[in-house]
Design a protein around this nucleic acid. Structure first.
Length: 189
DNA sequence: ACGCGGATGGCCT
DNA sequence: GGCCATCCGCGTA
């Protein structure tokens, strides 16, 4: 059984790179009227703020990026490529604009519900191994944008297993066209 | 096991 | 008007 202690705002009120590393092993959990789905975070990317050309904060606080500038521990959910959602955890102080993109999880709870939501998926290995895949599996969309992940909402990130630092694979972020060689992608093999 | 391109729409310039 | 922090299926090996 997963632990249900949500990570506190103080956890998120640090540099995105640190938070991205330490979110590995934590549990992302979503409750809907269909049931609960959750997974262990296995891949993250750090987006450092307005000085990071690949970070959405470069455009300033617009309608789309509004909650990226929210308080630490806020969920920043955005729509991309006309059909996909991605979820971030906001880091550092309110107004700064840095976050950690959740890129992969390993299902813990509600795997049958996840399969129903992603019926075309052939194997469980590809059920939640991408930022838009996991949002589809957990039914994360605009409704969750701006909610606090720190407890009390239908979306939260909870304490999980501790991941040894020497097992984390570090590499460049993917899918971006600027600041492409910064080593800000973290994953558990 | 790759590589490529289409789907699809909101938002910033 | 053009750009996306993507995914999937189809093509060539």
């Amino acid at each position: 059984m997963p632990r249900l202690n949500a990570l506190p705002a103080s956890f998120y009120n640090r540099d995105a790179e640190i938070v991205a590393r330490e979110l590995l092993g934590a549990e992302l959990r979503v409750r809907t009227n269909e049931g609960v789905t959750s997974g262990r975070i296995t891949e993250t990317e750090a987006y450092l703020g307005p000085h990071d050309a690949a970070c959405h904060a470069v455009a300033g606080r617009t309608k789309r990026t509004w909650h990226l500038f929210g308080p630490p521990g806020t969920a920043y959910v955005y729509f991309i490529y006309g059909m996909h959602w991605c979820v971030n955890a906001v880091t550092r102080e309110e107004g700064f604009g840095s976050a950690v993109l959740i890129r992969g999880i390993e299902p813990i709870e509600g795997i049958e519900l996840m399969r129903q939501r992603r019926p075309k998926t052939k194997t469980d290995a590809t059920l939640t191994d991408g930022p838009a895949k996991l949002c589809a599996a957990l039914a994360i969309d605009r409704r969750y944008d701006g909610l606090l992940l720190t407890g009390g909402c239908d979306i939260s990130i909870n304490e999980g297993s501790v991941v040894p630092a020497n097992t984390i694979v570090v590499g460049p972020r993917v899918g971006i066209s600027k600041a492409i060689d910064w080593p800000l992608r973290f994953r558990i093999p």
